[in-house]
Simulated assay, not measured.
Amino acid sequence: MINLLKEVARGKRGARDLVLDEALEAAEAILTLQATPAQIGAFFIAERIKMESVDELEAFVRVVRKYATRLPIQEGLDCAGPYDGRKSSFYATFPTAFVLAAAGVPVTLHGAPSLPPKWGIGLHDVIRAAGVDPDRLDAEKAALAAREAGVVYIPTEQWCPPLRELRSIREELGMRTILNSAEKLIDFTHSPYLVFGVYHNTVFDRLSRLIIKLGYRKALVIQGAEGSEDLFIDRPTRAYVVDDGQFHLRIYDPETMGLDTPMPEKEWTPAEQAAVAESVLRGEADMAFANQVLFNAAARLELAGRVGSLEEGLYTCKALIDSGAALAVYNSWKNALLGVPRLA
């Protein structure tokens, strides 16, 4: 590990990217704690200064996948948002998952208790506020949720224990590390489709090339709300579409769909996030939140090839909410995880 550190920690001008084999060696040493806490912290900081290469990112993804439980329980869409949570934006991806499942596209969500650098409200917190204990969602319950509702939530640190062991170091550093990207790409359910949130557009190219190497059928890399995978509803969103080994920029503009809506300012809590998500599925939400879910669901249906256009996706998703189909999927998901018997 010391020799690898010498290569990445020579400063902005002297540092070099590790080749794949070297990066795999570093990732293995870190994920198995063979490296000391000081070496792990030094590596994370050096990579943050140098900026991770595609090979280095790939290596960490491959090693976290190696030590994670990964089950091909459904073939659908993986929603990969930031584990450091939200401070000021609505978790549109949560209700969107149930709209997509109602349309026949299974969805995998995943997260962990909040992490640096943002320390915001995490999906983990929203799931708990919805009445489901996220720390008790083991493989058996994941399979049940997939079967009953087509929506799975994975508590990442339960399914990938090395990440749990590294939490204290990440908390002490208080900054983004290479794990912030790698943990979002574990692909717990072997999903062919991916939506992946980024904060800075400077990483579009690297992440798109990484996604191609990882073998996803199709993906959207989205510069969304607070670095999430959620398209904005009050302004255009920049995204890269990754398809068939190629990638290109696409602007998702809600105004062109007649959806552009000012977002109300809210002081979010996990309970507020869960309550607004449920109100969207009941068809009772503020128009901004309802439109944001429709816009995101339509884009993801188009990504998965279930509709031919955003317009068709919007009509499809609105019908699923208006008919109560999306709410029924949400209720089935909750009931399955809470052990509520199915009505005959």
Rank of each mutant, 00 (worst) to 15 (best):
M1E: 00
L5I: 11
L5T: 10
V8C: 08
K12D: 08
K12H: 13
G14N: 07
A15I: 04
D17N: 15
V19H: 13
E22G: 10
E25K: 14
A27T: 13
E28W: 11
I30A: 11
I30R: 06
T36R: 10
T36C: 13
Q39H: 04
F43G: 06
I45R: 14
A46H: 00
A46E: 10
E52K: 00
D55L: 01
E56H: 00
E58Q: 15
A59V: 02
F60H: 06
V61H: 03
K66Q: 13
Y67N: 05
T69F: 09
R70K: 09
L71K: 07
Q74E: 13
G76T: 09
L77H: 12
C79Q: 10
A80W: 13
R86H: 15
R86M: 15
K87W: 06
Y91E: 01
Y91N: 12
A92I: 03
T93V: 11
P95R: 01
A101K: 11
A103K: 09
G111Q: 06
L115G: 08
V126F: 07
I127F: 05
R128G: 04
A130F: 12
V132E: 02
D133S: 15
D138Q: 11
E140I: 12
A149D: 08
V151F: 08
V152N: 07
Y153I: 07
P155N: 14
T156W: 06
E157T: 13
Q158I: 14
W159P: 03
L163T: 06
R170Q: 11
R170T: 07
T177L: 03
A182K: 00
L185Q: 07
F188Y: 15
S191M: 14
Y193G: 03
G197T: 05
V198L: 04
H200E: 05
R206G: 01
R206C: 00
R209M: 03
L210H: 02
I211V: 15
I211K: 12
V221K: 08
V221D: 06
I222M: 02
A225L: 15
E226Y: 11
E229G: 02
D230R: 05
I233Q: 02
I233K: 09
T237V: 09
V241R: 14
V242L: 02
D244A: 14
L249I: 06
L249Q: 06
E255I: 09
M257Q: 09
G258T: 06
D260N: 08
P264I: 05
E265G: 01
E265H: 08
K266I: 10
E267A: 12
T269M: 07
E272L: 14
A274M: 02
A275R: 14
E278Q: 11
E278G: 02
V280A: 06
R282G: 05
R282C: 07
G283K: 05
D286H: 15
M287Q: 12
Q292Y: 00
V293G: 00
L294I: 09
L294C: 01
N296Q: 09
A297R: 02
E302C: 03
L303F: 04
G305F: 10
G305M: 05
R306K: 14
G308A: 04
L314Y: 10
C317G: 04
C317R: 01
I321C: 01
G324D: 08
S332C: 10
K334W: 00
A336Q: 03
A336K: 00
L337G: 00
P341K: 05
